[in-house]
Amino acid sequence: MRPIPRPTRLLATELACVRGGRRVFSGLSFAVGTGEALLVSGPNGAGKSSLLRLVAGLVRIAAGRIELEGGDGDANLGEQAHYLGHQDALKPSLTVAENLEFWTRYLDGGAATAPALDAVGLGAIAHLPAAYLSAGQRRRLSIARLISVERPLWLLDEPTSALDASAQAMLAGLMRSHLASGGMILAATHGPIGLEGVRELRLGGAG
C-alpha cells in the first residue's frame, strides 16, 4: 500500500442534480474540512440520498463541480470515499468474516478483518453465514467495512437505521475517532446521529 496524501477539504460549488427528468436540487454549495462532519437533512425526496450518490460518483453531476482538495491526484472522488447506502452489499451465503474480507481485499488489498469485526461487536459470530444476521447486525457488518479499509471521506446514508441504542453509540464512537484522525463525514439523516456541534445542510427549503 502506498501512502495516500490526506485531502484537506471537500468543496462543492453550484451543484445540481437531475434524476428521471426531475430537478432534485440546484445551486448547492458547501465545504467540509478535515475533522468535520456535515449532516444533510431535509424532507423525503429533497435529494439527500441523491447528493451522497452524486458525491460518490454514482449519479451524474448535472451542473457545478465537486472536488476533494489535496487528495490523491490519481484517484477520483469515489475511490477516496466510503459509500454506505441503504443496501448492505452482503451475500447471505458467505460468512460474516468472508463478507468483510472480500470488501477489504477488493477495496484496499489488505485482509486484516478481525479488529474491525470486534469493533462492531461481531467478532464472536464471524464464522456464521450472513443469512443468519438480523437487520441491525447486517448494518453493523457493513459499518465494519468503514474501519477495515481506510478512506478519508465517509458518505453515510441514514447510517443509524436498524441500529439499536448501543449500536448507535458504537457508530458515534467510530465517527468521532474518524473525525479525530482528520477524516470527513457527509451524512444524510432524519435525526441526530450522536455527534455534537456538527453543521447541518438543509435541503428542500422549508418543506
Binding site: 461487536g121 461481531l122 464472536a124 459470530i125 456464521l128 453465514p129 438480523s134 441491525g136 447486525q137
Partner: peptide, 10 residues
C-alpha cells in the same frame, strides 16, 4: 444452534 448464536450476539 447457529441461528441462536447469531441472535445472542445481537
Amino acid at each position: 444452534m447457529l441461528m441462536l448464536q447469531a441472535e445472542a450476539a445481537g
